[in-house]
């Protein structure tokens, strides 16, 4: 089992800072997700850990050993690429065993590992096929198989599910998580999909513009977002963030020192005369089946409430919105950072 420690890692291209002094630790045997919008540097970070690119500063340690200057093959890692990177002229079995052959693993051991991987991934009947004769999901499994037989303690995955359809993506999420637990690999997984991050990760490293925005467990990331960006990146629909005026009320005009964040599911719609309720006017209604999203305007802010079932509210109606003190997140608008947890 190997832990991965990244310290002050940087990758600059001229004045462009793809990655700017990133530090975090992934515990041995845990599942870490590098999450962020496109261009945030998450793929660069993964490629640096893999050794496919070299950093302009900082260090990477795997299992206590400094691997910053080592070639990819000497780092004890396996990697699954977004495009799978299968060799098109080799059969499934040859693809899976390619690395073992190159490393001169003897034939009996190769066969043993191949059989185990094929069984784990349900590839038994496909071993003689070429990648072009496989579906996207099957190709994905072959790529996983190649990573498994390497028996590397650390496995890196670069958006491995982004080329699959929604249904398959759901199945593979569970399967990859299950495999990672069963083989107790240390996993570093890159994605831009917050659902993948929330459902699979032990630890989410949220990146933005080459810097870490927040490094926390999924539940902590959801319950205590450290910044406005983190608050709005996680959750569907995202957290409502509205500007506050000097008295701490929702501002009538944009711009203000503070900002208030409330998750849609924490907002309840109440009669407009309810004491303490925020009075707002309904802008739109979105019926989703299990619940309804009610978007309402208050001053310069727009608040979305998630209401169970089909809400009997019309657009244009005046309603009251209420939430508990604990559901409030207060941010500093200039720094974008969380100020403090609301007083209980």
């Amino acid at each position: 089992m190997s832990d991965v420690v990244v310290e002050k890692l940087a990758r600059h291209w001229g004045t462009t800072k793809a990655l700017d002094g990133v530090s975090f630790k992934v515990e041995a045997g845990s599942f870490a997700v590098l999450l962020g919008p496109s261009g945030c540097g998450k793929s660069t970070l993964l490629r640096l850990i893999a050794g496919l690119e070299s950093p302009t500063g900082g260090s990477i340690r795997i299992a206590g050993q400094d691997v910053t200057g080592l070639p990819p093959a000497k780092r004890g890692i396996a990697m699954v690429f977004q495009s799978y990177a299968l060799f098109p002229h080799l059969s499934v079995a040859q693809n899976i065993c390619f690395g073992l052959e190159v490393r001169h693993v003897d034939a009996a051991e190769r066969k043993r590992r191949l059989e185990r991987a094929a069984e784990l991934l349900g590839l038994g009947k496909l071993l003689d096929r070429k990648p072009s004769q496989l579906s996207g999901g099957q190709q994905q499994r072959v790529a996983l198989g190649r990573a498994i037989v390497a028996q590397a303690p650390v496995c890196l995955m670069d958006e491995p599910l982004s080329n699959l359809d929604a249904q398959l993506r759901h199945e593979m999420r569970l399967e990859i998580r299950e495999l990672q637990r069963r083989l107790s690999m240390t996993m570093i997984y890159v994605t831009h999909d917050q659902v993948e991050a929330m459902t699979m990760a032990d630890q989410v490293v949220l990146l933005r513009d080459g810097k870490i925005e927040q490094d926390a467990a999924p539940d902590a990331l959801y319950a205590h977002p450290a910044t406005i960006f983190a608050a709005r990146f996680i959750g569907t629909p995202p957290m409502n963030v509205v500007d506050l005026d000097d008295e701490g009320r929702i501002a009538d005009a944009p711009g203000g020192a503070g900002a208030l964040g409330v998750r849609p599911e924490d907002i309840v719609v109440v009669p407009i005369e309810t004491p303490g309720a925020v009075q707002a006017r309904v802008e739109s209604i979105e019926y989703l089946g299990a619940d309804t999203l009610v978007a309402a305007r208050k001053g310069a802010g727009r608040l979305v409430a998630r209401v169970p079932g089909k809400a009997k509210i019309e657009a244009g109606a005046a309603i009251g919105l209420a939430w508990t003190q604990e559901a409030q997140h207060i941010f500093d608008n200039r720094t974008g950072r969380r100020v403090a947890d609301p007083p209980a």
């Binding site: 496919l52 070639p71 990697m79 690429f81 990177a85 690395g99």
Partner: peptide, 26 residues
């Protein structure tokens, strides 16, 4: 695709082996 060379590099495949096993057949 450049990914092929990268995947091979991670497996510890040398330049000549990569040429012989992947580039030339392709």
């Amino acid at each position: 695709p450049p990914n092929l060379a990268e995947a091979a590099a991670i497996e510890g495949c040398g330049r000549w082996t990569f040429f012989r096993r992947v580039t030339f057949p392709l």
